[in-house]
């Protein structure tokens, strides 16, 4: 359980995290979703006590992280992929961290095996690929078998098999009744992993809801119609209050009435319908809609915030 209350972090005049209040509950994967620069990483660093909040508090399992006598057993974290000395071997990196908690070499070999790095355990971490570095970071997080996992963009640099592995790992963790907070800027990745989402934009909490609700919100009321009688049907639809736009000679995009209603209307007018499809709004688009005003830098020319 992670509990944030009015968490705020400012750097000079810039507010990175703005009055965040949320609870991450055990037993499910909670996704931390937001564009780059939304404050996800800063929030995660504050949970771990690496950054001090300007105001507000955050606790893990009822106490500030730093007050836990065995912190690695409370939270296992993967922050930026490379929190590893490049000249040290994977084995010694893990052993050094394990030693602070009196955890032995046997457990180190166990997690190396679990993330599939046994073969390269005695190689310097500096020579690792992005994916291997990511796995070593995950091994670090798993080291003390923590009650809570906090992973910042864990699938970065992983191949599809690795992504699948992370997904199963997180779900397995949550199924055991543990707490999982995982961040991503990829909505599609979250949709298949997280059961609950916290959406962040420019440091503010935009949404705190079950994934299923976010997906429902993403369903649209736009219907694509393909018909030779586009002129006539378009006018009739406009007559019943629909918003209609012509996208092709024989194609309309209709907002308002359901597909059924449009079909019935066409039948009444004797217009044949060649296609009638509710438009799928991608999760990415839904997410973009939610965070559009909150993206720190827009790509469009001349509108950099």
């Amino acid at each position: 359980m992670i509990d944030a209350k009015h968490l705020t972090k400012t750097y000079g005049t810039k507010t990175a995290v703005d009055d965040l209040t949320f609870t991450v509950r055990p037993g499910q994967v909670t996704g931390f979703l937001g564009p780059n620069g939304a404050g996800k990483s800063t929030t995660m660093r504050m949970i771990l006590g690496l950054d001090a909040p300007t105001s507000g508090t955050v606790t893990v399992a009822g106490q500030p992280y730093r007050d836990h006598p065995r912190p690695l057993q409370v939270v296992g974290a993967l922050l930026e992929a490379r929190a590893i000395h490049t000249s040290r071997t994977a084995y010694h990196h893990l052993l050094a961290l394990a030693t602070t908690h009196g955890i032995g070499a046997e457990r180190v070999r166990q997690v190396l095996e679990q993330v599939g790095l046994t073969e390269v355990a005695s190689k310097r971490a500096g020579g690792f690929s992005l994916g291997m570095g990511q796995r070593l970071g995950i091994a670090t997080a798993l080291l003390a078998d923590p009650e809570t996992l906090i992973l910042d963009e864990p699938v970065n640099g992983l191949d599809p098999e690795g992504i699948r592995w992370i997904r199963d790992l997180l779900k397995g963790f949550a199924a055991e009744g543990r707490t999982v907070l995982v961040s991503s800027h990829l909505m599609s990745e979250m949709a298949v992993t997280a059961e609950h989402v916290l959406v962040l934009g420019r440091g503010r909490l935009l949404a705190d809801l079950p994934m299923s609700e976010l997906l429902a919100q993403a369903a649209s009321d736009v219907v694509l119609v393909r018909t030779p009688g586009a002129d006539e049907l378009g006018k009739a639809l406009a007559g019943i209050g629909a918003t209609v736009s012509r996208t092709d000679v024989d194609a309309l995009e209709v907002t308002g009435p359901s597909a059924g209603r449009i079909g019935d209307l066409a039948r009444d007018l004797g217009i044949s319908i060649h296609g009638l499809v509710p438009k799928q709004v991608s999760l990415e688009e839904a997410f973009m809609d939610m965070t559009r005003d909150d993206v720190e830098f827009h790509a469009s020319a001349g509108s950099a915030a």
């Binding site: 790095l117 073969e119 790992l169 779900k171």
Partner: peptide, 22 residues
């Protein structure tokens, strides 16, 4: 590098080995 092993088993799976720490 061999692929990572499957995720830890869920509640139905074998009990986790507790990690001894101090």
């Amino acid at each position: 590098v061999p692929a990572p092993r499957a995720a830890p088993a869920g509640p139905a799976g074998p009990a986790r080995l507790a990690v001894r720490s101090h």
